[in-house]
């Protein structure tokens, strides 16, 4: 599974209120959430984000509230992957559960700048910065997690698995 996209770069402790402010949690609509993604933190995000773009951030990305609306808003905005130095625990689970690939890689996160293009091989856990030529290694996902991401998340993955077991 290979991705290539342009980078949005953020710092440490980007909390889920920054990703999707709580005032928009009166809906579960993916499109409505995407329309307000990152707006308190970066007013240029919604207008300029392109399908396939990648978010790169510092430590503890996704800290704070357990709202699954946060990875949903990023994914529905077109974000294909988040690379960070570290992730907050609940966000980590939520992102994978909804099929948004995320990679922990401090070296790549620190060296990548806004506007760079990254090429990411999820099965190998390899990140290549197209602009600088640098390559970074993150821990590759096990087979089941790749299948889960490919299925679009935990629920669809579980459904397929149940169907196979009974088929």
């Amino acid at each position: 599974m290979t991705l290539e996209g342009r980078v949005w770069k953020y710092g440490d402790n980007i909390d889920t209120d920054a990703i999707i402010p709580a005032r928009y949690l009166n809906t579960s609509s993916e499109a409505e959430l995407a329309a307000h993604c990152m707006e308190d933190w970066d007013t240029s995000f919604v207008a300029n984000v392109q399908p396939g773009d990648i978010v790169v951030a510092g430590k503890n990305f996704g800290c704070g509230s357990s709202r699954e609306h946060a990875p949903v808003a990023l994914k529905a905005s077109g974000i294909a992957c988040v690379v960070a130095e570290t992730f907050a625990r609940i966000f980590y689970r939520n992102a994978l559960n909804i099929g948004l690939p995320i990679l922990e890689c401090p070296e790549a996160a620190q060296a990548t700048l806004a506007g760079h293009t990254l090429e990411i091989d999820l099965s190998a856990g390899r990140i290549r910065n197209v602009d600088t030529g640098q390559t970074y290694q993150s821990t590759p996902y096990p087979e089941f997690m790749l299948a889960l991401i490919e299925a679009g998340g935990l629920v669809e993955y579980t459904r397929r698995k149940l169907a196979e077991d009974h088929g």
Binding site: S66, R67, E68, I90, R93, N94, N97, I98, G153, L154, V155, T158
Partner: peptide, 10 residues
């Protein structure tokens, strides 16, 4: 411990 909605659905 806190989790997201999908985990809670399961």
């Amino acid at each position: 411990t806190g989790m997201g909605s999908t985990d809670i659905a399961v």
